[in-house]
Amino acid sequence: MEDVKIEDVIKIEDIIKQENLVFSKTKNLTDKTMSFCPGCGHGVAHRITMEVLEEMGISEDTIGIAPVGCSVLAYEFMNIDMQQAAHGRAPAVATGLKRVYPDKYVFTYQGDGDLAAIGTGETIHACNRGENIVIIFVNNGIYGMTGGQMAPTTLAGMKTSTSPYGRDVETMGAPLKITEVVALLPGTCYVTRQSVHTPGNVRKAKKAIRKAFENQKAKKGLSFIEIVSNCNSGWKMTPVDSNKWMEENMFPFYPLGDIKDEFKLLQK
């Protein structure tokens, strides 16, 4: 017995048993294959949001709102009641819904073009009113859905299909740090910037989302979670390279971490 190697007696079939299960897809995601490109961070952002609802036991009381952009088909994958909104208007739609269902959980799931360009007004005012909702903001610095055009968050010098020679801040404006802007508003309770490209970052981002929904449960006001993410198709890189590029180029300009907590700006 002493000489028997563990590896010799444990077969794969012995491991793959229900009692040994440690990770499987949440039931809050449908079985439909996601429409996102291979390696896109949207899929992880979807999953951890749905996992949080499941773990908090609030899936039956949550309504999600996804407007236009790559997030538009969220209702195909999130197995909860969902509303699809017009481009940029999700914070207004969420406001309208949450005000008449104050005891339900309401969140929006928006991209950078949606939240920080066409929907800036709705974003700022929902944050300023301190609507008791969660905003999940996926920032990949590009318009992914329409084929890689310049976004409000596109980095200076970054090439896109509408800034083919790189974003010229003299004529095209500087990238907009909308998250820092909403952190200044009195209605935002919790503002954080996360990413979902490594296991550690995914776990941190999920904790942040959990905290945001706990804030909503405690009726604290608006929680705003930016997820800096990749768009390997738009950036024209492999998924692994795009995550590396993101670390090297996006994170210096969009540093990760909490910006505001319990209504207090955090000094860093």
Partner: peptide, 13 residues
């Protein structure tokens, strides 16, 4: 723009 979308959200509920 916001008010009609607020109506959208509440009406959808």
């Amino acid at each position: 723009i916001a008010s009609v979308n607020m109506v959208y959200g509440a009406g959808a509920g």
